Amino acid sequence: MIKEIREWAVAIIIAIVVIVVIRMFLFVSFSVDGLSMDPTLEDGDRVVVNKFIYDISDVERDDVIVFNSNEESAYVKRVIGVPGDTVEMVDRTVYVNGEPLQEDYVVHQGESYMDNFTLSELGVEGDVIPEGQYLVLGDNRPVSRDSRDFGLITEDSIIGEVQLRFWPLNEIAIDF
């Protein structure tokens, strides 16, 4: 009996250590709060964030990421501009390096608080995104608090890339 209890205790301790290691270094779950990523991610969706992906690869345009904000909670947004890019929005069309982005995921319902911008209007010195900084926008532009509001984000603030929506169960999805 004591041997069986000891085996169960060891198995439980190992499971707890594995879970802690996974959550600290590899993956974390995140709950989407708000409408800024509609229709891609909806309020209340639960996602898995890959925390180590940017240790082995670069942040790329169109990645959906979670990052720490200067506010009380983390945000989920889409990367639109990476270091070296020029970005501007004219008449609700985003131009990266002079080319319009094809953004089928974007919601335009009425006018948002800042439909047109240039990098200089976002506080960037010069006309390109500096190293280690990124421009992020929500897919639901009329209601999204994003780089139009708080400027570029730093690489240090990025928690990871959203790679799986697991809740609600009828909308499980991989890669956005």
Rank of each mutant, 00 (worst) to 15 (best):
I158Y: 00
N170A: 10
S144Q: 08
I153K: 01
A173D: 14
P100K: 04
L164R: 01
T93C: 06
P130F: 07
H108W: 13
D127C: 04
E155N: 12
T86H: 12
Y113L: 12
E88W: 02
I174C: 00
R145Q: 14
G123E: 09
G132T: 11
V96P: 02
V94Q: 05
V128E: 12
I129L: 09
I174W: 13
G123F: 05
W167H: 08
G126A: 10
I159E: 00
N97D: 15
F176D: 02
V143W: 06
I153V: 14
Q102I: 15
L135P: 00
G84T: 08
P130Y: 06
R92D: 11
I172T: 11
V96A: 03
D175N: 13
L169C: 04
G110C: 03
F176E: 07
R148C: 05
G151M: 09
A173K: 14
N116G: 04
Y95A: 10
E111Q: 13
Q133E: 15
D156Q: 14
G110V: 05
S112L: 01
A173S: 15
N116P: 02
D149M: 13
V162Q: 00
G126N: 05
E88R: 14
W167M: 12
R165W: 02
V90L: 12
F176T: 07
N116K: 08
E161Y: 00
E125Q: 13
G84C: 09
G98C: 05
V107N: 01
V136D: 00
L135N: 01
P142K: 08
R141F: 06
N140T: 10
T154I: 07
I158T: 01
Y113A: 09
G126V: 08
I159H: 00
D104I: 14
E88Q: 14
E125D: 14
D127W: 04
D139E: 10
T93A: 11
D127A: 11
F176Q: 11
E125M: 11
V107H: 00
D139V: 08
G126W: 08
E88M: 14
W167K: 03
E171C: 06
I80V: 15
S157T: 09
S144M: 05
D139F: 02
I172G: 04
G132V: 07
E131Y: 09
T118V: 10
V143H: 05
Y105K: 03
M114L: 13
I153G: 01
T118P: 02
E88G: 01
N140Y: 07
F176Y: 15
I172V: 15
V124L: 12
S112H: 01
F150T: 01
Y134T: 00
G84N: 08
E161P: 00
P168L: 13
E161I: 10
F176H: 12
P83L: 11
N97M: 08
V107E: 03
R141I: 11
V128A: 11
T86C: 03
Q102E: 14
Y105I: 09
I153Q: 02
V106N: 02
D104G: 15
V90F: 03
N140C: 11
M114Q: 15
E111G: 09
S120K: 13
L101C: 06
E125R: 11
V106F: 05
E131K: 12
S112R: 02
L137D: 03
S157E: 09
T93K: 13
L152H: 05
D156V: 03
I129T: 03
T86V: 06
R141A: 07
F166I: 13
